[in-house]
């Protein structure tokens, strides 16, 4: 594996469109639920262990070479609200464009061909990781980190938080990220024999409720 490929894939500057999304942070800030560093950390920790774990499982499974279209269906069953399914596919399309340019391969072409409307972002992330020569655990790490990196960066802009404080939050979440990635990769290792039902399906009621709510706003800074 190439460590540099993992850094590139997980880099917020990788042109995959993630900077336009707050992962529910904009809605949480608007409701007053996130207002300082402590509540930012609680938000990120909760998101990591729910949506982050689920995404990491899907990404790791895709990186094992499991059928990405079946994993896309599994992502649908784990995403009960339409707004978040829409966002997941939109982010997936953008990541797919960047990944095909960076690590061209038939597997990435395959999902573009079969799901022109897009595939959920964690599934694309896993296929891209595989194309870059990375392991399922690497893919899970990238997805877990992505689940908190985006919201933390968004909080800096939304709340004018000190970027050092936001970075410290992410630093304190490092062990949790490792645990989530490990759990996700373990589950992904069983997918080939046991099917996609063994993948994590952790969900968070408020992320679903506010995700749909945010999509109905007429004026917003972030797309999600």
């Amino acid at each position: 594996m190439s460590r540099t490929a993992l850094l590139l894939l997980a880099d917020g500057r990788f042109p995959a469109g993630g900077h336009a999304h707050s992962g529910g942070m904009e809605a949480a800030v608007a409701s007053g639920a996130v207002h300082d560093t402590t509540s930012l950390e609680a938000f990120c920790r909760g998101r990591l262990h729910t949506a982050g774990l689920t995404a990491a499982g899907l990404a790791a499974a895709a990186a094992t070479g499991h059928d990405p279209l079946a994993l896309d269906d599994a992502a649908d069953t784990r995403t009960p609200v339409p707004a978040l399914r829409h966002i997941g596919r939109r982010l997936g399309r953008q990541l797919l464009r960047a990944a095909r340019a960076t690590w061209p391969c038939p597997e990435l072409d395959h999902i573009a061909h079969h799901r022109p409307g897009g595939v959920h972002q964690p599934v694309v992330l896993g296929v891209a990781a595989r194309a870059a020569g990375l392991t399922p655990l690497d893919a899970a790490h990238a997805a877990a980190y992505d689940s908190v990196g985006g919201p933390a960066t968004a909080a800096v802009r939304l709340l004018s938080l000190d970027p050092f404080d936001a970075a410290a939050v992410l630093g304190r979440l490092a062990d949790d990220c490792d645990d989530v990635a490990g759990e996700a990769a373990d589950a992904a290792g069983r997918v080939a024999t046991a099917g996609t039902t063994v993948l994590p399906a952790a969900s968070a009621p408020l992320l679903d409720i506010t995700g749909e709510h945010h999509a109905a706003w007429t004026v917003r800074l972030f797309a999600s």
Binding site: A42, F43, C44, G46, A204, L206
Partner: peptide, 10 residues
């Protein structure tokens, strides 16, 4: 983890 935090049950 963080089950009563702002992402989960608020």
């Amino acid at each position: 983890s963080a089950w009563d935090g702002p992402a989960v049950l608020g």
